[in-house]
Write a protein that binds this DNA or RNA. Structure first.
Lengths: 231, 231
DNA sequence: TAGTGGTCTAGACCACTAT
DNA sequence: TAGTGGTCTAGACCACTAA
């Protein structure tokens, strides 16, 4: 074997050694300095490779204790969270949407508490139905904090989806996201054109800009939706 | 503002400037060299901060073209894919499991084709029910390529779950994973103790070790399961 | 307290690509 | 072709922690 060149080749070589069981799960591997000497490169280069593998869950690193092959690898999967239009167009389908509601009202308590707002605070309530090739694809139910919208909502909602207008207008710094399955509620079923009780893939997102809550949104995907990624 | 120290503070400062719209979506930001001069640090430190933000989808970087704030941020979410036992114990619940089936048989065609095997190849078929505090938590239906098991399956299946035995024994190099929702099939319902048709969160994983297919598994979670992460 | 990883520096060369 | 990010180097100091 010729010595690996560059941090990506070093990463690949480390994975090979783990796969070949030269380094078994739980075993300690050589230090950065030792590997750098073996590969004839700087320690920083080895560090880069091992750091990526640790971020991926393949290795566990602790100062002084050294670097080990993860015994029970908590593998990390990276998901892309695209804007709906791009998700639909990425499948080669035509994207369209219809705004069902845009009103300013007091949300249900679970929503206001999730955003950390007073129970009587009013929010924008935006409901949108997204289509792929004319078929209902996604039913979006969004609550939006008007405090983060100095200029209010745009006049012409027909031109861009709220979704895209938001991400261009309100940057968020932190958010959380949860995926689950739910039987279609009456409104889900009506909008998506499925029987009540059909199993739907649900995404719920909450985002903040600094300390200020921005939006809480529930996305109900039409049956057949799959969120896919590589490990 | 005092100059940020270290790449994490630089990353935070960049996010602040994006949040404050000093740097708007789509706008180009200063070069690494300029930022390094402003912050009084080495270019490599700025590079580290901006590289992390680009990996997260906040920035878009291209040589010569410079670094821009992402217009339609395809945000990246990182999911942890732990072993089931750790997932249950991480909730403070007691973990247990029961092996329902361990046989060597010819799988349905969708399974063999997904693994790239001949339709008449035999595989191990392992079905396991996982419990959290004694309640059914996850129904696992796994097909396993015997070719990757030089010594066959372990004698005593009661001591460790197949899940953990596998990850310790068979390192995989590539895999893909998909999440979806499905109405409970008859077997799902029977094992998980729910009504047929209940909405279940489904995870399907396929893994390879080099060119050799390792395993294809379908995980059906009991209702209420949520996959959660931060953005 | 000593060993190991985490980070930073100042400089260099390279790879890619807008112009 | 020139500008920008991508990576590497050789060395240094620091932070954490196992022994």
């Amino acid at each position: 074997m010729s010595a690996p060149q560059g941090w990506e080749e070093i990463r690949a070589e480390v994975l090979r050694r783990i796969d070949r069981r030269d380094w078994a799960p739980g075993a300690i591997i050589p230090t950065e300095a030792e590997l750098a000497a073996e590969f004839g490169c700087a320690r920083a280069t080895v560090n880069r490779a091992l750091r990526e593998l640790a971020a991926q869950g393949v290795l566990e690193r602790r100062r002084k204790a050294g670097t080990r092959v993860a015994t029970l690898p908590v593998r990390k999967a990276t998901l892309d969270i695209p804007v709906t239009r791009l998700e639909v167009e990425g499948r080669g389908q035509h994207y369209d949407f219809r705004l069902l509601e845009a009103s300013e009202t007091v949300p249900p308590v679970p929503v206001s508490s999730r955003l950390g707002l007073a129970p009587d605070a009013t929010l924008w309530h935006l409901r949108t139905l997204h289509f792929a090739d004319g078929q209902p694809f996604l039913y979006e139910d969004r609550w939006l904090n008007p405090a983060v919208l100095p200029d209010g909502l745009p006049e012409d909602m027909a031109e861009v989806s709220i979704n895209e207008w938001l991400v261009k207008t309100v940057a968020y710094t932190y958010g959380d996201i949860a995926f689950s399955a739910a039987n279609a509620r009456a409104d889900d079923a009506a909008h998506l054109g499925v029987e009540p009780g059909a199993a739907l893939f649900i995404t719920e997102r909450t985002t903040w800009a600094g300390e200020a809550p921005v939006t809480a949104v529930r996305l109900a995907y039409a049956p057949g939706y799959r969120l896919h990624t590589v490990l």
